[in-house]
Design a protein around this nucleic acid. Structure first.
Lengths: 233, 233
DNA sequence: GTTAAAGTGTGATATTAATCATATTTTCGC
DNA sequence: GCGAAAATATGATTAATATCACACTTTAAC
């Protein structure tokens, strides 16, 4: 059944780790062990603290990954999209989710059980090595982020949040940050450890300095180089 | 030559990833490709930005791993000791060190070239999988740290730094934090993104509240539960 | 469409944190 | 053991941030 319309072979997500690093010969088997689910907007895919049954891949849509913090101050870890691995942080010895994942848009998600995925890792060393390298890269990024959060003030943090979103989602031709209308001020705040109040104020500053244009939730980044200067070190 | 006194087989570091997950049959080969170096106190093992020739393991001693930040504000990433892997963040696609490593005490370090280590990874899937799991665990810890730094105030950050050191190094029977006399106020500050000045002040507060006892650089954590309450969520 | 609820914008005020100055102590080389 | 240099402790001052209040706007439910 490798030629049905849901087969990995027909999947447009060439970003998918499994597809990129596994031999064609095993894809049929992968496909048989795959479970695809569809989630509407604002739904949880999994919750921090719950039992982790396996690993997910984002087939389509945008997913917010975050960690619960004290005093209702959550921390957004990343946004996942376009075939990216999801819940890979759950691939540790503990089988408890250390993060939560919630859809920002309607999304399709592929799922594999822990058992099957570990079987695959044993079988395909290149998959394992590349997954390891991916982790190393993520670890470096997290550390840069940590350093930034330790050093930046409120204004710089908001600039950082906007530039992070541009890097992740990209700009439309009119310079509007893609998907930003799906995010609340609270979401932007939780990317960089601020309150929604602080974000609103700095955004108002940026607007009055003509660095950005605001239209409801939409934000157009008129002057990206100037914004980058704010956090230049 | 597997029975010389420097052989991995005789090494007391059972924490060592290679030794733990590789078959005995390969250890002889590992040993031939190993280079052991000794570093005096306060020496650099490698520098951020330099070419990364391979991977290290801490055979003995305590090593500080840190990242350069703006305005002389470095960020301490971790302390490595007792057979732990070092420079694993360099095992990414880029061959440039993203961190620096400096000894806090006299230390012995084992080194393998990139080429040999990747050869080993291809050959020993269990080593690769367990290294990947180790990364996943580190990534989770980094994310918790990131969240904490985003949420904690100065007082809470100092409490967090002390508890991190206790977790890492342990307490002596007199409740003194091990190795803390090797760290400056600046080091403690760089663990949690503060200045040495701020650390000094909060430590004075903790002392006057009888949470800790200070004697030069030595700190005894008299009331660990109370300290933990400061950062309880 | 109407209404309630949630989210956003903005100012005032209280609190916290950063910076500087300087005294004191500790460390290190000779 | 002595002197210089570095690190640490502490107070005063200035700057930045957090918090609250409340008006306004948008969103969602009925």
């Amino acid at each position: 059944m490798t030629n049905n319309r849901d087969s990995c072979l027909n999947c447009e997500n060439n970003n998918c780790f499994i597809k990129r690093y596994s031999p064609i010969s095993i894809i049929d088997d992968v496909n048989k062990n795959k479970m695809v689910s569809r989630f509407p907007r604002k739904q949880h895919i999994f919750h921090e603290g719950n039992e982790n049954p396996g690993i997910f891949f984002v087939k389509s849509g945008v997913v917010k990954v975050y960690k619960n913090g004290a005093f209702n101050k959550d921390q957004i870890i990343r946004f996942s999209l376009n075939g990216e691995i999801l819940g890979h942080r759950g691939l540790q010895k503990s089988t408890i989710f250390s993060v939560s994942a919630q859809t920002l848009t309607e999304s399709e998600v592929c799922f594999f059980t822990r058992e099957y995925f570990f079987y695959l890792l044993e079988k395909v060393p290149q998959l394992t090595i590349n997954l390891m390298l991916f982790y190393a890269e993520e670890l470096n990024q997290e550390e840069s982020k940590l350093r930034d959060m330790a050093i930046f003030n409120v204004r710089e943090k908001v600039a950082k949040a906007l530039l992070t979103l541009v890097e992740r989602f990209g700009l439309k031709t009119n310079k509007e940050i893609k998907y930003i209308e799906k995010l609340s001020r609270q979401d932007i705040a939780e990317l960089v450890g601020l309150t929604s109040n602080q974000v609103t104020k700095v955004l108002a500053d940026f607007k009055s300095e003509n660095l950005i244009e605001i239209e409801g939730k939409k934000i157009r980044l008129a002057k990206k180089p100037e914004m980058e200067n704010i956090i230049a070190i």
